[in-house]
């Protein structure tokens, strides 16, 4: 009953924020304009609708990835970034901006290619690993390598405009993302979410540790492959179209665990909905920044996430987070 209420509540929240995302911006478009010949309808249909759908997919896939990563690593501080995929995808995108033509499709393809390369490297580094710690270490190596190469590429950029474009892209944003971005990323994100949603029972069993999980018939190599492929698709596609948006996968499962319960499988759908709500809300706030420009979504998420964790840290001193 409590779970049903939570899911209904989160669905209503996402729906409300989705509608708000269509209405709110530098120009407010009231509901009455939606069913009339108001020319502002174009703002909704061509600009805000794909952006809002992308926000739902991005937030949902990051929230879900975070819940799965925390369940898999049995660590409440894990987030999708620990696999190094977001860093690898960011490297690809920056490479396309600095070295290539920086077309929308070019950036997306380069980011996805690097994300896939990062996953292949991760799999090669850990194919005989028996503990999740090996993945965290390999992911940290991958993320560090990707960050160093990204910085190197920016340092050799031929002119300051390209440097600015790369840094701007790295900050993560939904600004000016359209139908084309959505159609590029959505299939990968949806496929990743589908894979991750199937991990619930295995993650529940893993609560008892790897031995007990295996004795319950759970295939841990298969789970590992599901987590890496699913989170890799979600995060890679997300970074490929929006840049690096952090904290969603880390914060959302934390926020929902006290309500949804600590069972990892019970957190998956609520975290997807919660992630969608958080990104929609943050994107709306980004648009309301004073002046002509917008606050970058990645910056806004960090500004929300860091204080949240500070409050959590102060409130939970001496207590277990799990």
């Amino acid at each position: 009953m409590r779970r049903t209420l939570l899911l209904v509540g989160l669905s209503v929240l996402v729906t409300g924020l989705f509608v708000a995302s269509l209405m709110v911006g530098k120009a407010v478009v009231p509901l009455s304009a939606w069913w009339s010949d108001d020319p502002r309808w174009a703002i909704i249909a061509e600009l805000r609708l794909p952006r809002a759908v992308l926000a739902v997919l991005l937030g949902g896939s990051l929230g879900l990835s975070g819940a799965v990563m925390q369940g898999w690593l049995r660590n409440p501080l894990a987030d999708p970034g620990v696999l190094g995929t977001s860093g690898a995808a960011a490297l690809g995108a920056v490479a396309a901006i600095v070295l290539g033509g920086a077309t929308q499709w070019g950036i997306f393809a380069a980011a996805m290619a690097c994300a896939a390369g990062g996953l292949a490297l991760l799999a090669a580094l850990t194919w005989r690993a028996e503990t999740p710690a090996a993945f965290v270490l390999a992911g940290t190596v991958l993320a560090g390598l990707a960050a160093a190469l990204t910085a190197f590429l920016i340092s050799i950029a031929p002119d300051p405009y390209i440097v600015a474009a790369a840094i701007d892209w790295l900050m993560g944003a939904l600004t000016d993302r359209g139908v084309e971005d959505l159609t590029h990323a959505a299939p990968f994100m949806l496929a990743g979410c589908g894979v991750l949603l199937a991990t619930g029972r295995s993650l529940d069993a893993l609560t008892l540790g790897p031995d007990a999980a295996r004795s319950l018939g759970i295939g841990l190599p298969r789970l590992q492959a599901q987590v890496i492929a699913g989170a890799g698709l979600c995060v890679g596609a997300g970074v490929a179209v929006t840049g690096v948006v952090g904290f969603v996968g880390l914060v959302v499962p934390h926020m929902l665990r006290p309500v949804a319960g600590a069972r990892p499988g019970a957190l998956l759908v609520p975290s997807a909905l919660g992630g969608a709500a958080l990104v929609l809300a943050a994107d709306v706030v980004c648009r309301l920044a004073p002046g002509a420009g917008e606050v970058r979504l990645g910056v806004a998420m960090a500004l929300i996430g860091a204080p949240y964790f500070l409050v959590l840290l102060l409130g939970e001193r001496g207590r277990s987070w799990a």
Binding site: G71, R74, L206, L208, G209, G261, R263, P264, S320
Partner: peptide, 9 residues
């Protein structure tokens, strides 16, 4: 020494 990694019911 069976561990329980999350504070489940």
């Amino acid at each position: 020494d069976a561990a329980v990694h999350w504070n489940m019911l």
